[in-house]
């Protein structure tokens, strides 16, 4: 059975203008998201994960960021073409976002109840006040907070509880797509597991699709269906979780990341870090962007940008594999 496609991103390119030059944050990213599935965007700081997420909602800073190329097709409509005021109807209603830091993404001077009500009110103008209140209470209950706490302010909640409130806000209008930007990075391990499990249950219950932005392979393994590994603004490897965690073929960067992680199940004397640093987005190297740190680099890598090599849907952007196919 062919799965329904909810979101298609084609050749998305985002640049930031800065005083020192142009930062190439996202370079030619393409992916598809099926209905009800979770896609993981995984990579290190500055890889362009959050920029990709913000582009979908058109929340990039207007004065510095520019989408120079590409299409973001959501349910058959290119989000980059529709007028601003129509975008605010989609934002929060059909696509919503969970931000990384629950300490800063809530407004400290409003009660959590009223913050959840706001998006319900804005997107459902026909509802009466008691109905909105009821819906907000329902949302709080859904994320495991008793509705009696609706009149509390964010500072009265712990980090994990705040993130639950943020999730309640994001889900309040039954969105079809939720973009979660490092939703559990600021939380403790036991709380992280609680919150992720709750998100997983809600996702299944409502058939919501999700883009999970994270740097943590553990989170990816436990929550995602498909995975895109991002490096210097490019997707260098894409596949199902099985492809990424169980296949032997990988991009050297993905392999490097796995070797950098201390393994819980076996003892390693020494970790094998990836040498060097991520390239500066203002001065990206020619050819493969990873070639400066790659242990397998050969001449072609330094000049020619590698294409996606397709192994039955498992894509790897690396010259090492072009010989094989």
């Amino acid at each position: 059975m062919e799965k329904e496609i909810l979101l298609t991103i084609k050749n998305l390119t985002v640049k930031y203008k800065t005083d020192d030059g142009i930062a190439e944050a996202v370079n030619n990213i393409s992916f598809q998201l099926h209905k009800g599935e979770t896609l993981g965007l995984v990579g290190e700081t500055g890889a362009g994960k959050t920029t990709t997420g913000l582009s979908i909602l058109r929340l990039l800073p207007e004065r510095t960021a520019e989408i120079t190329e590409g299409e973001i097709i959501f349910k058959g409509e290119n989000l980059l073409d529709i007028p601003k005021n129509e975008m605010s109807v989609i934002r929060g209603k059909q696509i919503s976002m969970i931000f990384q830091d629950p300490m800063t993404s809530l407004n400290p001077v409003y009660t959590v109840g009223s913050q959840i009500e706001e998006s319900i009110f804005l997107h459902n103008r026909d509802l009466t006040n008691p109905q909105i209140k009821e819906k907000a209470d329902e949302m709080l209950e859904l994320v495991g907070i008793t509705p009696e706490r609706r009149d509390d302010y964010p500072h009265q909640f712990s980090g994990g509880m705040k993130q639950r409130v943020v999730i309640a806000m994001a889900l309040a209008c039954d969105p079809e797509l939720v973009i979660a930007d490092e939703p559990t990075t600021a939380l403790d391990v036991t709380i992280q597991a609680q919150v992720l499990r709750m998100m997983d249950e809600l996702k299944r219950k409502y058939g919501t699709s999700m883009i999970m932005i994270t740097h943590d392979f553990g989170v990816v393994a436990k929550t995602c269906d498909t995975v895109a590994v991002v490096y210097a603004g490019e997707i260098i490897e894409y596949g199902t979780v099985q492809d990424i965690f169980e296949d032997d073929k990988h991009h050297p960067y993905t392999t490097g990341l796995f070797h950098s992680l201390p393994n819980m199940n076996q003892d390693t004397e020494r970790l094998q870090p990836i040498e060097g640093l991520m390239p500066d987005p203002m001065a990206l190297p020619a050819g493969c962007k990873f070639h400066t740190r790659c242990p397998h680099c050969f001449d072609k890598c330094k000049t020619v940008l590698p294409q996606d090599i397709d192994f039955n849907g498992h894509m790897i952007k690396c010259h090492l594999y072009s010989k094989e196919v």
């Binding site: 036991t190 597991a193 499990r197 997983d200 553990g218 393994a221 099985q242 965690f245 169980e246 796995f258």
Partner: peptide, 18 residues
């Protein structure tokens, strides 16, 4: 138990979370 291992051996639903 709360550690999320980077493998597919156990799912979130199977974990006993405090």
């Amino acid at each position: 138990n709360a550690i999320l291992e980077a493998d597919l051996k156990t799912s979130l639903a199977e974990k006993s979370i405090i």
